[in-house]
């Protein structure tokens, strides 16, 4: 019995030294990777943190710098909370990401996803009035919007329009 206890104790200590040792090493490495986050975490306000996160997404999606950050800020500043927004992008990855992020960041605004402006867009837009906005993600804007909507803001990779009927 005593031998069994001794062997079991020995194995238990060995197991803890193995797992605890590996854990200690991993956590030491983790500390090193996280220390650079400390300064921005202590100094940035909420908007700056969101812009930073969106900036990382711009790199991942190969979008011009500032596209998502400025789209977000333009929507936040220039659209009311009950706004309805058509989000247009021909790149499915951008569309999914922009929708999933912006709809959460800008709740209670509502978003509709489109890959291009459909021919009957005006009738749909009229039915959603008032407070209808169109966010185009891409280097160029659709010429039909120039005739019918008011440009609120534009950047390197986006155009924000308001449609008033």
């Amino acid at each position: 019995m005593l031998v069994k206890t001794k062997i079991a104790s020995f194995l238990f200590i060995g197991y803890l030294l193995w797992q605890g040792g590996v854990a200690g090493y991993q956590m030491g490495t983790e500390v090193k990777t996280r220390i650079p986050d400390l300064l921005p975490a202590l100094t940035m306000d909420e908007t700056a943190r969101i812009r930073r996160d969106l900036g990382l997404w711009e790199k991942r999606l190969h979008l011009p710098a500032g596209t998502l950050q400025e789209s977000f800020q333009s929507l936040a500043r220039r659209t009311p909370e009950h706004a309805k927004i058509f989000l247009i992008s021909d790149d499915p990855n951008t569309r999914d990401m922009v929708l999933s992020h912006l709809k959460i960041l800008l709740l209670p605004r509502r978003f509709w996803l489109l890959d291009h402006i459909p021919s009957d867009w005006e009738s749909k837009a009229r039915s959603l009035l008032p407070s209808l906005f169109i966010l185009e993600i891409g280097p160029e804007s659709d010429p039909r919007l120039r005739e019918k909507a008011t440009l609120l803001n534009a950047g390197k990779g986006f155009f924000l329009w308001e449609y008033e009927g």
Partner: peptide
Amino acid sequence: VVALVLLRIASASLEPMVAGDEAGIWSQ
């Protein structure tokens, strides 16, 4: 360990809640 948890919290504070169950279920 407490210092590491605080560092993890600091890192997390740089990301808004926009993905997963955190955003889709609980925060929503």
